[in-house]
Design a protein around this nucleic acid. Structure first.
Ligand code: ZN
Ligand code: ZN
Ligand code: ZN
Ligand code: ZN
Lengths: 130, 130
DNA sequence: TTACATAATGTTATATTATAACAATTTTAA
DNA sequence: TTAAAATTGTTATAATATAACATTATGTAA
């Protein structure tokens, strides 16, 4: 028997929901929306979210406690993430900018420390809200 | 009567606590530590934190839901923040790097959008933990 | 196939983080 | 002095997240 993909049942349900959403989804919004599919309790949601974040299928927008599907094949399992966040309409876009990624991935602080991972959140007004 | 500074009583108590801490403090840790000074309830803490963030005296480390005092006179009232976060010992340092700030403050995404503000969190191992 | 390990699930309860709502007091500035 | 704005105090509750434990499903190697 072949596996069609690497996601479990709950992970797939929750990924599908996030992936088709045009905006970041919060854990309890997700819970509410998947209850008809048999996912009834917070730990089921948080466990799936943890795994999806870990494998880079989704990202957490830390400033919003919300989750978006990865739209950037280049973010290397969430080691280099950057987002554009509208302060008016809540819209979030993942930024795919090779130069930016390269600049930050190779950043050394004054002590010469290199980092394994970064997360960058830009705030402003999106095109629509400007 | 002259004002010594621009912080109210509760704001000053909470700022002093955060400012003398070597690590990020969480809201309920703060609450516990200031109860002997008469600050008894969460809203008092969160209101002071909100104001201190707003005025740039402290920053919120979004990935940790914790607060640190600003160590960078150049972060321009929290419009341009960058942190180094140790994944092992929880240590957080504010990064003061004029080139980095300049690079990110002038960043344009592919649609030409410029942003008002950014927050960058680097993750890795600090000197001690490496 | 069996049998063991690992991963995923289901479930209840609880911990942690944050805000709503409203009353009272203090500070500021016209 | 007085009215607006800011701050404080207080109770209750909302929103976010995890602990703990039992069960089931899946992968893998003898
Ligand atoms: Zn991504
Ligand atoms: Zn917008
Ligand atoms: Zn700062
Ligand atoms: Zn460390």
């Amino acid at each position: 028997m072949f596996k069609e993909n690497n996601l479990s049942k709950n992970q797939q349900i929750i990924f599908d929901l996030i992936n088709k959403s045009s905006e970041p989804l919060k854990a309890y919004t997700i819970l509410f929306n998947v209850q008809k599919k048999g996912i009834k309790a917070p730990p089921q949601v948080y466990r799936a979210l943890d795994k999806l974040v870990e494998t880079g299928k989704i990202h957490k927008i830390e400033s919003k406690n919300a989750f978006v599907a990865c739209r950037n094949s280049n973010c290397e399992i969430s080691k280099a993430t950057a987002f554009s966040i509208c302060e008016s309409c809540e819209m979030v876009d993942e930024i795919s900018d090779a130069k930016l990624t390269k600049y930050l991935s190779s950043f050394n602080d004054k002590k010469g420390t290199k980092y394994k991972r970064f997360n960058l959140e830009f705030f402003g007004l999106c095109k629509k809200c400007k």
